[in-house]
Each structure stands twice: as C-alpha cells, then as structure tokens.
C-alpha cells in the first residue's frame, strides 16, 4: 500500500507540474499588459513601466515561472494586484462556497443519475426506459447558464422559494446556506446527471449480458436479485471513471453558474481576475483547482482497488 501511495504521489506531482506549466504559459500569451490594465489606458508610460518593475514583469519568463513554483512549494501564494491582499485570503473565503456547491451538485447528479440509469436498464425498451432516455436527452441539450436563468425565473421570481442569487453566508445557518446553493447546484448537476444516467444505463445493460449474470440466474436468483447482487457492483466500475471525469467538468461549470447566480466563489473570482489581468490570482486558483481534480482522480483509483479484486493496489 505504501508503494501504491508513493507511486500515486509521484503521478500527482508530475501532473501538477504539467498543469502549472500550461497555466503559466497560457497566461503569458494572454494579450494585454497587466500593468497597463491595472493603471488604465490614460496612465503615462512611465507609471506603467514603474509598475511593471514593481510586479517583476520585466524579468525573464523562465525566472518568473520558477519563482512562482518556489512560492507554491513553500506554500506562499502571491498577492493580488487588484485587491492588494494575499491570494490565500481571497481563496480561503471562496473555497468554502465553491467546494460545497460542487459537492452538492455532484451528490445530486450521482444520486439522480444512478436511480434513473438503473431504473431505465431494468425496464429496457419499455416505457420507463424510453421516458428516462427522453428526459436525459433534454437534460443534456439544455445549456447550464440558460437552465440557471429558467430556474431563477421559476423558483425565485415566480414561486419565491429560493433567493435569485447571492450567498447568505455560512454564519446564517446550514439550511439557509444550502438553500442559496440549491438552484446553482441543480443547474450544474443537470447536464452531468443526464450524461451519467445514460452511461449508467448502458453499463448496467452491458453487464446484464455477461455470462456470470446468466450463471446467477441459473442458481435461481430472480431478475431483481441478480441486478442487486451481481450486476450493480460490476457495472459501477466504468461508472466511477466517468464520475471522476465529471468532477473536473463540474468545477469548470462553477465559473459560469457562479456568475449567473452572483455567488462569490472561486469561479467568479477567476472570471473577475481574468478580466482584470490579475495574473497572480488566476494562476494560483487554477493550480488549486487542478490539484483538486488530480486528487479526485486519485480517490477514483483507490475506489477501483476497493471494488475490483483483480486490481492489486500496486497495479493502479
């Protein structure tokens, strides 16, 4: 197990290094001089040059990359140009909103997808199956920002069940906080859940055709008994892979959904930081999210080893 963890840790580091390089380079080629953006178009060139010097933008790219890496490794995040506070402070606040939002929508999506997917598979080609497939097709084709607007219009404006945006803050209590996250979570979860439901359905159907399922029936198990005892666990192996991948999508989705619902989370922070050319913030938050995604994939791999005895932890 320790070899397994060591190997995984190594992959973790290599992946993060790759991600950091990509993040850094893509911000480098972003048009617009951060100093110019911060000071405005009318500022004199001398002031811009002075700020560039202060921000260290005059130094070679390679130096700045390694500087940044060194900072990350020692846990010292940068200071935001625009907010003039350490990036860590900006993140600390917002991660407590974005992370629960992501978890909540992941839970919603997985719960609904598994129930619908399994139900559809057990009613293969019958009306229940066809309805679920139709519903999921609808779910896949609705863009999440548009769904978000529809949800606001219906549940917040018309029915008044939820607030139309913003986040009340955890100090207002758990229920209230979750209430203000529920609409954004639904709009994030819908597409992912619809895809996952379809995937679950086909994984279950495929597993039902396996020889060992026929063996189980030959033992005298009912269709339902076979489904619960033999099909589901086998079918979950591919489904878990997709869940891991979807988590990354979900985090990316928060950028748009937080903007629509005016939720002060990491997604919104990135979006604003990009438009303000607040490069320190963008790259620190992006690398944090990348680390989160890599970590989730690590969890998925561990889950594999738990479910499937054919995989020894060393092989993962």
């Amino acid at each position: 197990m320790s070899i397994f963890l060591l190997k995984r840790f190594f992959t973790f580091i290599v992946t993060l290094l790759g991600a950091s390089l990509l993040t850094f380079l893509s911000l480098e080629i972003l048009p617009g001089d951060p100093a110019r953006v911060i000071l405005g178009i009318d500022a004199p060139q001398s002031a811009v040059d002075a700020l560039r010097l202060q921000l260290g933008l005059d130094r070679p790219m390679v130096d700045r990359y390694f500087d940044w890496l060194a900072h990350l490794l020692t846990g010292r995040f940068g200071v935001s140009y625009t907010y003039n506070v350490p990036v860590m402070d900006l993140i600390k606040h917002r991660i407590g909103i974005t992370f629960p939002l992501a978890i909540l929508s992941m839970l919603l999506s997985v719960l609904v997808a598994l129930i619908l997917g399994i139900y559809a598979a057990s009613r293969h080609n019958k009306i229940g199956d066809v309805s679920v497939m139709g519903l999921s097709q609808l779910g896949i084709s609705i863009p999440n920002f548009w769904l978000a607007l529809l949800l606001i219009l219906f549940f917040a404006v018309n029915l008044g069940w939820f607030s139309s945006g913003g986040f009340v803050g955890w100090d207002k209590g758990f229920i209230k906080s979750i209430q203000s996250l529920i609409l954004p979570a639904i709009s994030l979860a819908t597409v992912q859940g619809a895809i996952l439901a379809r995937f679950t359905r086909s994984a279950v159907l495929e597993t039902m055709r396996e020889d060992y399922v026929r063996t189980a029936r030959a033992k005298g198990l009912t269709r339902r008994g076979t489904l619960w005892k033999h099909v589901l666990r086998n079918a979950m192996i591919p489904v878990i892979t997709i869940m891991g991948l979807q988590f990354a999508n979900l985090l990316a989705g928060t950028i748009i959904v937080e903007e629509v619902f005016a939720i002060p989370g990491l997604g919104r922070l990135i979006l604003q930081a990009i438009s303000n050319r607040d490069i320190t913030v963008v790259r620190d938050v992006v690398i944090l999210l990348a680390a989160l995604v890599v970590f989730i994939n690590f969890v998925v791999d561990v889950l594999y080893a738990v479910i499937d005895p054919r995989l020894k932890p060393q092989d993962v």
Partner: peptide, 15 residues
Amino acid sequence: GMIFQEPMTSLNPLH
C-alpha cells in the same frame, strides 16, 4: 443445475 460452456467468464469476478 447447469454448468456452462465458458468457465472463464461464468463466475462473477468480484465475488
């Protein structure tokens, strides 16, 4: 009782 043709795939790999 029945025994099948394919012993390699007729047992549940997870049990």
